[in-house]
């Protein structure tokens, strides 16, 4: 058995495909690409796939991961080429590499996600707007979302952010918790600010840039 880790991007219309839907989309892609898939036993025969933390529907991503168990070795470059040919429009393989069968699952391993959020230029002066959003992000400690109160611990949930002007848009970079016990979504984090500033949610673009895990006391990028 071999465990192949596929990193891929999900852009354009593909960003609307949910993680649940992705299971079938990927299975069929791998079948078309004739990957030597290992299957679960029992009533429902499914290939052994394990996905990284899900990206919310509507977010683009340059950092989607899935581990696939193969019964035979398939050279990484061959796997790459086949994925390039058989992924549906909007998906693109970025890398393939073998990892140990024993390695902890992707979902358990990942601790943080890096997001980029593109906001339209504000009606007020950009510098004023930048200060406003900075001040909001520096002070936000809890968010009320759909009747639920989400506490934000700056250190453990939201360690880093930056905001600046880029190519006629406001670009917001956020590092947010993506763990089993706590996940902070960038859209939920900034929603109160958007409402306060009357910025329509649909004018924003979200991109997940990277995933991070703890290794030797340091945050490392998952590749």
């Amino acid at each position: 058995m071999f465990r192949l880790r596929i990193k891929y991007e999900k852009k354009e219309w593909a960003k609307f495909v949910s993680q649940l839907e992705m299971v079938k989309v990927l299975e069929r892609t791998l079948r078309r690409a004739e990957f030597p898939l290992a299957f679960t036993e029992g009533f429902s025969l499914r290939p052994k796939l394990s996905f990284g933390p899900p990206t919310p529907v509507g977010f683009e991503s340059e950092t989607e991961f899935v581990d696939v168990i193969l019964v035979n070795y398939l050279p990484e470059v061959v796997a790459m080429r086949r994925l390039e040919n058989f992924f549906p429009e909007g998906f693109k393989p970025l890398s393939t590499r073998y990892v140990s069968l024993e390695e902890v699952s992707l979902v358990k391993r990942v601790s943080f996600s890096e997001y980029e959020v593109f906001l339209p230029l504000p009606r007020v002066r950009s510098s004023v707007f930048l200060e406003k959003i900075k001040s909001y992000l520096e002070t936000v400690s809890e968010i009320s979302h759909r009747g639920r109160l989400i506490k934000i611990n700056r250190e453990t949930d939201f360690p880093e952010f930056s905001v600046f002007l880029s190519e006629g848009k406001i670009l917001l970079r956020l590092i947010l918790a993506t763990r089993g016990d706590k996940t902070v979504r960038p859209d939920i984090l900034i929603l109160p600010f958007l409402e306060q500033e009357e910025i329509p949610f649909s004018s924003l673009r979200f991109l997940r840039k990277a995933l991070f895990f703890w290794g030797n006391g340091q945050l490392k990028k998952l590749i």
């Binding site: 219309w13 609307f16 495909v17 892609t29 529907v57 549906p88 649909s202 004018s203």
Partner: peptide, 18 residues
């Protein structure tokens, strides 16, 4: 894209099926 994003189930409107 904006209309699809705001809809209940965006993936039904894609048109990029294999």
């Amino acid at each position: 894209e904006k209309l699809i994003l705001e809809s209940e189930k965006p993936s039904r409107y894609l048109g990029t099926e294999w």
